[in-house]
Simulated assay, not measured.
Amino acid sequence: MLNSLARASVSKVTDPIGRGLLRSGLTPDLITIVGTIGVIAGSVALLATGHLFWGTMVVTFFVLMDLVDGAMARARGYGTDFGVVLDASCDRIADGAVFGALTFYAFGQGDTVLGVAGLLCLVTGQVISYVKARADSVDLPIGGALAERAERNILGLVGAGLAGLGVPYALDVALWLLAAAGIVTVVQRLVQVRQAAVRAAADPTRHRTGRPAL
């Protein structure tokens, strides 16, 4: 949802940055790796240890680098297959670091209920992305969903940041909303894949494997 709505506006900011970084000799893959390391460091050193506000600031900065590597690829005029796989893999690592850290923090505070919410966010976030990737791998195109990566990161980090500023129950509300949205989105993705599979089965140009006939 947010991915599609914000892409055009965000590109106006990130595209000039991407061109500048390319001229400096950096590569999109390097930016992807640096951003992921930054998210992991901020999550482990700050979010997991209860420094929620500053952890949110650091993690948000490095999460935004995920937008810059795409801008660099566009400015260069091409991407690479390795870059696509690297970016997707690093996204999963970064998301796992953020919600793993928030889950660790919750359990460390003795808040089992919040910890369960964090675990649900962690698991559903990975499954949502996995279902989409597997569907793409067998040529079953599916559309947008309720809680994609942008929504998950925004809601989780806003909740953590507000909690770090002392807003009561901000993290609880954010994680439980996200956990519920994540469960709904997993089901939504599977329904989308099933519908795409039915359409593919009715297509006489496709083999039984689901791939288009040549």
Results as ranks from 00 to 15, higher is better:
V116Q: 13
Y78C: 09
D111H: 05
T14V: 02
L102R: 10
D136G: 09
A41Q: 10
L178W: 06
L140D: 09
A170M: 00
P168W: 11
I31M: 10
L67I: 14
N3S: 15
D111L: 04
G79T: 05
I17K: 11
L46H: 09
K132S: 12
Y130E: 08
T103C: 01
R208I: 15
I40N: 07
L2M: 13
I31V: 07
T56F: 12
D172L: 13
T124H: 13
S129H: 12
G79L: 00
E151G: 05
T32I: 00
T205K: 12
H207Y: 15
T112Y: 04
V198I: 14
V127S: 11
E148F: 10
A71G: 06
C90L: 08
G35P: 04
L214H: 14
A180M: 09
M65S: 07
H207M: 15
G182E: 11
A6C: 15
K132N: 11
A45N: 15
L157E: 00
P168C: 04
V158C: 05
T14S: 04
L52K: 04
L26K: 07
A73C: 02
G159I: 02
T112C: 10
G159C: 01
L178S: 05
T27L: 02
V116P: 15
G70F: 02
Q188G: 07
S11K: 13
T32R: 00
W54E: 11
A71I: 02
A197F: 10
D15W: 12
L47I: 08
L102Y: 14
P28C: 07
D172M: 13
F104P: 11
A145P: 15
D139S: 14
D66N: 07
L46A: 06
R211P: 13
V173D: 04
T60E: 06
G83A: 01
L64Q: 14
G210M: 02
D87F: 01
V98P: 02
A160W: 01
V193W: 06
L165Q: 03
N3H: 14
V158R: 13
L64P: 08
V127R: 07
L165R: 06
P28M: 09
I154W: 05
V191K: 15
L171G: 00
I93H: 02
A160D: 03
V173M: 04
T60N: 10
R19A: 05
S43F: 03
R152A: 08
L22S: 11
V13F: 12
E148K: 07
A163S: 08
S43Q: 01
Y169Q: 14
M72A: 01
I37L: 12
D66A: 06
A135R: 05
V127K: 05
T36C: 12
F53A: 05
L119P: 11
D136K: 09
A147T: 08
G70A: 06
P16E: 03
D91V: 00
P141H: 09
S129D: 03
A48P: 10
